[in-house]
Structure formats: C-alpha cells, structure tokens
C-alpha cells in the first residue's frame, strides 16, 4: 500500500458517497446513467469473486464488500426507490458494444485460463469503459448538476491516482500488471475532456455546461 493507491481508494469511496448523497438529498437520480451503474455492479462482482477463496487483508476485504454492496444499493435506489426520476430515454448508450469486446479481450489477455482469471480480466476491461454511458448521457444533455460533476471528478481522481501508484510500485517492488495498467490508462484518458470542463468551469463556480 502506498499513499497514491490509498488516496485513490478513498477517492473511489468518496465518489460513491457523493452519488448516494446526491440521490438522497435531491430525491432524484436525474442525470445518472443506470447503465453505467449496472456495469459497475458487473465489474465488482466479476472482479471480487476471490472474496470467496483468497484473503489479502482486512482493508481489501472490507473495501470489496463495500463496493459490491454500495453499487447494488445504487441500483435499488434508481430502479425502486426513486424509479420515477430515472429517465431511460436519455440513457441510450448501447452497452452490448462494451460488454462484447471486453469479453473477447478478456479471453485473449489474461493471467491464466481459469474462469476467475478471465472474469478478473473482463472486469478490468469493463471498468475502463463503464463510465461511457454516463459521459455519453452528459454529452447528450449538455449539462449536469454540480454534485454529479463532483461524483465524476472523484471517480476520475481515483483513476488518476492509480497511475502514480503503478509507477511507485514498479520502482519499489518491481511490480507491474500490464493488463491493469493498459486498461487503466485508457480509463483515465476518458476523463480528460470532463476534467477540462470541470476545472475551467465547475471549480470556478460556474455551471457544468458543454458548448452547444
């Protein structure tokens, strides 16, 4: 564990709390892509199957359980509790274009032909693109509530912090995970446009609005 990974994980936790807070206080999941949230459940469940057979640390265990539970809770909020505020008609990204290629990539690039290893790879690839339905929705509507942009910024910060974590681990432990690094770089790249608007507008006190 190093500070980059630690604060990355904390940032990831924060993003989830921000999202849940947004839904509760506004009593609405407007502006949130249900598809992205479903993909995150798929990511966490397929990646954390090792909860059943391997022990890393208490920290690792608690975080994994939290990510699975909180992502399922968000689906419940969106589909049951605040269902009327969820508008599927603007959440139109075709998820099969993400899941299919990720499954193929996982079969080609993995660390061993075991079901759990292939699912692990799949989850890494899927996480890297899971935010796309959300960003697509943002693009379509052209604007976002400020709190939603804080959610995305915290998620983006989590991904960004994993990069110095890998650099640190390479030099301190000689540890490199090529699959995680490659997918992680792609994932972080997806946030660049968003970050630009976030830093130049939202953090200057303006509303998140994309140019028409």
């Amino acid at each position: 564990m190093n500070i980059f990974r630690f604060f990355g994980d904390i940032s990831h936790l924060a993003s989830i709390f921000i999202l849940i807070h947004k839904i509760h206080t506004s009593r609405s999941c407007r502006g949130i892509s249900f598809k992205t949230q479903v993909l995150y459940v798929a990511v966490f469940v397929t990646r954390y199957l090792d909860l059943l057979y391997s022990w890393v640390s208490l920290y690792n265990f608690v975080m994994k359980v939290f990510f699975i539970a909180s992502s399922c809770y968000i689906l419940y909020l969106m589909k049951v509790r605040f269902r009327p505020t969820n508008d599927p008609s603007i959440d139109t990204f075709r998820v099969e274009y993400l899941v299919g290629p990720c499954a193929v990539l996982a079969l080609i690039f993995n660390y061993g032909y075991a079901v759990t290893e292939v699912l692990w790879s799949f989850s890494i690839f899927l996480e890297s693109v899971a935010i796309l339905p959300q960003l697509f929705m943002l693009q379509r509507t052209g604007e976002a509530e400020t709190i939603t942009t804080h959610y995305l910024a915290a998620l983006g910060a989590y991904r960004t912090l994993y990069i110095p974590n890998w650099i640190y681990r390479y030099f301190s432990e000689g540890y490199v995970d090529p699959i995680a690094v490659t997918a992680g770089l792609v994932q972080t790249g997806l946030y660049l446009d968003f970050f630009y608007v976030y830093f130049t507008k939202v953090l200057q006190g303006q509303k998140f609005e994309l140019p028409a």
């Binding site: 990974r5 994980d9 990831h12 990646r47 090792d50 391997s54 890393v56 640390s57 690792n60 975080m63 994994k64 990510f67 660390y111 061993g112 692990w120 994993y162 974590n165 540890y175 995970d177 995680a180």
Partner: peptide, 10 residues
C-alpha cells in the same frame, strides 16, 4: 505467478 499477479489492488 501468484506473487506477481495476486490481484491485491481493488
């Protein structure tokens, strides 16, 4: 192998 790719990251 297990050592290097133990998947200790979240």
């Amino acid at each position: 192998h297990e050592e290097v790719h133990g998947h200790d990251e979240l």
